[in-house]
Amino acid sequence: MSQKPVLSIKDLSVSFATEKGLCQAVKKVNFAVYEGKTLALVGESGCGKSVTSLAVMRLLPDLANVSSGSIHFNGQDLLTLNKNSMCSVRGNDIAMIFQEPLTALNPVFTIGEQIAEALLIHKRITKKQAKDRTCELLDRVRIPEARKRFDEYPFQLSGGMKQRALIAMALACEPKILIADEPTTALDVTIQAGILELMKELQKEMNMGIIFITHDLGVVAEIADAVSIMYAGEVIEEGDVYQIFENPRHPYTKGLLESMPTLQTQKGEKLKTIKGSVPNLFNRTEACNFENRCAYAKEVCRKEKPFLEEEASGAKVACHFHRTIS
């Protein structure tokens, strides 16, 4: 990938000032998103995927603090923008769809009003034009009877329809980057497939970069070009989707892949799980984060944290033994 990334994140760290002390939710995360490509951020619950994406949108809750790093987009660092300039980036250049489609829409405004609002905020158009464009969008995300749905309220739509409406809202201004935070987790499997298909189609059409957040490797295989695996707030392995699936280096990535059901899985056979739990994020030690759950852990893993190293293939992995354990 010699192309220049649209969005590049360098050394991003986010901490929460909680009652129990400082919680380092995201630590020195790096990644880049390219035009027309999808980067999947993968990791188990609580590993900092949502916090990372909210940091990009500058929508973190008040008690969160970005302690270091930069987020380069369009030749500027988003972290240095003032409130107003950030508002004109959100929804216009970088849009986001959230984990909970069921509650993400405003219950007292119609679907149409909410989608048209995105257009009216960023584009110089009349209400009439915004309405026409909104109906086109509703049609485009395959919501039937767009004209009629325009005047319906969120409670009148099913979960899948709500997520489609949210996608229409996010894509209204044809953003260069779309952040999708587990867009299908709350939905039925059958509806999931439709939404993924739709996102791929729209990505081709608008040539946008997507950050796709998920903990479902099945979905990753379906949609991603590049993958970053996160663990306890850090990226521990990254590479393109083939490298990750065919030649995983990090013991955690291997564990994730092995805990995925496949067609070969026999009925009654137990799926492998990764034993143990995530280390606490309050007192980070010098040890490798995964050391307590890792079958390959040796003395050095307890003493020294491995850094993300680039391999000949271009993939990166943070493990002392990545050469010996593949």
Binding site: M57, L59, K83, N84, C87, S88, V89, R90, G91, N92, A95, M96, F98, E100, T103, A104, L105, N106, P107, V108, F109, E117, A118, I121, H122, L166, M169, A170, A172
Partner: peptide, 29 residues
């Protein structure tokens, strides 16, 4: 704290707009 407020911010609504349009109509209930 509601999700719909976050959605409104994510589409680029300014803070006064978020409060006076999105929040106020819900709070009226």
């Amino acid at each position: 704290k509601s999700d719909y407020i976050r959605t409104a911010r994510a589409k680029g609504a300014s803070e006064p707009r978020v409060l006076f349009v999105h929040l106020l109509k819900n709070a009226m209930i």
